[in-house]
Design a protein around this nucleic acid. Structure first.
Lengths: 187, 187
DNA sequence: GATATTGGGTCAGTCATGTTGACATATCTT
DNA sequence: AAGATATGTCAACATGACTGACCCAATATC
């Protein structure tokens, strides 16, 4: 029993502590230094995106928990608020989840009287989603939190920074998906 | 049974389709128009952040799935790669999850031979985390995907935009958390 | 007009990742 | 010596994803 790696043992077997690893082999400052600089810039972007998103959503999570909802409910509320009359299929494409997953969330929102459906006018198979007054009120309170954070960040950074912020994010989105995102504004 | 709202019924009761909602009451173009403009800018930021993050992570998810891992494993790998010798407690603070959640993830990574621990030099209670060569290889392949996306977005947007991108994201992070994020670079 | 496709809904089971709460052990601090 | 800290572990549970298999109604196609 020299190297207890397996996790299948019934009673816990502590994982071995090894020798401290050799320090990472930092290259001499030659032609490679530009590449290292670039890697750091990339990593910084990844990290800021991760922590920025987490921070923005944190307070919203707290409100949602009080209401007995989760982020999934919020995303549905958000996009329905953004594009009233959205069809179920369009919402599915935006969220990129399965019909079954969305079905549960949407069902709960309808049963709580926050979301309602109407029958499509051109295509009667469609179900067009909209918020009830209660749904609009909840969405507004959630949006207010996001807005406060975002407006403060915009203000700190300035208008030019906001433009840059947008354009980098657009660049991250696959070209095929960009029309979908762009069309959210004007409905 | 006019309004089958309850979800407690055994057999499905279809939710009612209501009258199409009145069109949203857009205000006349008075003093409020500046506010509406601002709301749209805020919503655009929220959406781009959501879709940008999703898009960036998408291909990484595919690789992880092949390996039988999830995003949680990736986050651990990422931060250990970023700050070799990171203590468990520091990783917990970065991820903002519970010890038990991290324990499972870290255990799996160790059992698969991707992560190893060593005993802290100043404080022998600490367990310092580092990647094995296999772990470093997997992390590198995941990073390569993120890097490709991010570098392309940086390139499309230009250096000035990248600076703006960073500064808005920093603004989103609570001031108390900023030192933690900043310290990732120089370890 | 018959048939195929599409939009939406539902049941059932599974998985990944988070949570509380309670304890155990080794090490550091006072 | 006593208490605080860093880490690990067991157990039970919640959420929100997933796959797969069906169903109905309405539209499109041949």
């Amino acid at each position: 029993m020299t190297d207890p790696i397996s996790r299948t043992k019934t009673r816990a077997a502590p994982r071995k502590a090894v020798q401290p690893p050799a320090p990472p082999p930092r290259p001499a400052l030659t032609t490679a230094s530009a590449l290292y600089l670039r890697e750091d810039e990339i990593r910084r972007g990844i990290e800021l995106l991760y922590f920025g998103y987490s921070s923005m959503i944190r307070e919203v999570d707290a409100i949602l928990e009080q209401e007995g909802f989760g982020r999934a409910h919020h995303r549905a509320l958000y996009f329905i608020a953004r594009s009233p009359g959205l069809a179920v299929g369009d919402l599915l494409r935006l969220l990129a989840i399965t019909k079954q997953s969305l079905g549960r969330v949407l069902g709960e929102l309808q049963d709580r009287g926050l979301v309602q459906q109407s029958i499509g006018t051109q295509d009667r198979r469609q179900r067009l989603l909209s918020l009830t007054p209660a749904g609009a009120a909840l969405e507004a309170s959630l949006f207010a939190e996001l807005e406060a954070r975002m407006a403060s960040a915009y203000g700190e950074a300035g208008q030019a920074a906001v433009t840059g912020f947008w354009s980098v994010l657009i660049g991250l989105i696959a070209k095929a998906d960009r029309p979908m995102v762009d069309s959210l504004g004007q409905s």
